[in-house]
Nucleic acid binder design. Structure first.
Length: 250
DNA sequence: GCCCAGGAGCATA
DNA sequence: TATGCTCATGGG
């Protein structure tokens, strides 16, 4: 990318977004906080297979990451609820579920035939992982990327929000926001924009899963409210230093 | 009715 | 490598 943001610019961006929007409450599933079986933090200790010793919900995060692909979280969450309602609430249950019934169960999230297939594939790999924590992060990432239906965003979401491994999650929003603020990501040469931008974030922001998780969620929030496809610059607090805005008012 | 949502696989050039 | 097509429901 010709106009790569500096580490200072990326840090400042995080601060600005956080001050403006505050904590976003992404995974674990905060909307379930206080619900039966869930604690105040949205965790579900004991019931779902868990990698993290503190009871992080791998099942919820991994399935949610697949179900929300190109779909609003609201629709994905309702599919997740339906899975629970029908007793498909663990990886073994996914493994034994009829693919047609699974597809019907996740219908509300769209692309339900594909997503049922993806959930099956994901289950096969996660079940065969062996002892959690015994596999190094890079190998785990490589392994997940080989699973049919799991691309870089979905894999990094699972690594970050379920396994607590600090990989920065990128998506179309990040590409758009960085592109508008600093210059066109299309100029990000060498191996594609994803690894290029991810490496930039990794070098710029302290490797902290809480910060990475919050930062990604904040970018999504901002791109839904202000930096939309048809940008609403009147709602944006970043305009004083935005290349796109400055060029548009010139 | 149209557009978009917390993408990814696959074919093609 | 980049682009285009496909998959599909639900809410604004």
């Amino acid at each position: 990318m010709e106009n790569l943001p500096t580490a200072q610019q990326l840090s400042a961006l995080y601060e600005t977004l956080f001050v403006h929007y505050g904590h976003q409450g992404w995974w674990p599933i905060m909307s379930r906080a206080g619900e039966e079986g869930y604690d105040e933090g949205g965790y579900h200790p004991g019931i779902y297979p868990s990698i993290r010793e503190d009871g992080g919900a791998l099942f919820d995060v991994a399935c949610g990451a697949v179900l929300t692909q190109n779909t609003s979280w609201k629709n994905a969450e309702s599919a997740l609820r339906e899975m629970r309602m029908r007793g498909i609430d663990s990886f073994p249950k996914i493994a034994e579920a009829d693919i047609g019934r699974l597809a019907d169960t996740v219908r509300s999230s769209g692309y339900y035939n594909q997503k049922a297939k993806k959930l099956k594939a994901l289950t096969g790999t996660l079940s065969g992982l062996g002892a959690p924590g015994k596999i190094d992060p890079a190998s785990l990432r490589k392994r997940l990327l080989q699973v049919w239906g799991l691309g870089p965003e979905t894999v990094d979401s699972i690594l970050l929000y379920a396994f607590d491994i600090p990989y920065f999650v990128l998506d179309a929003y990040t590409q758009r926001l960085v592109g508008r603020l600093f210059g066109s990501p299309a100029l990000c040469r060498g191996g594609g924009w994803y690894p290029c931008l991810q490496d930039l974030f990794h070098r710029s922001i302290r490797r902290d899963t809480v910060v990475y998780g919050e930062y990604h969620a904040l970018i999504v929030r901002h791109c839904k409210e202000a930096c939309t496809v048809r940008p609403r610059c009147d709602r944006c607090m970043l305009t004083p230093r935005c290349r796109y805005y400055l060029a548009s008012v010139r």
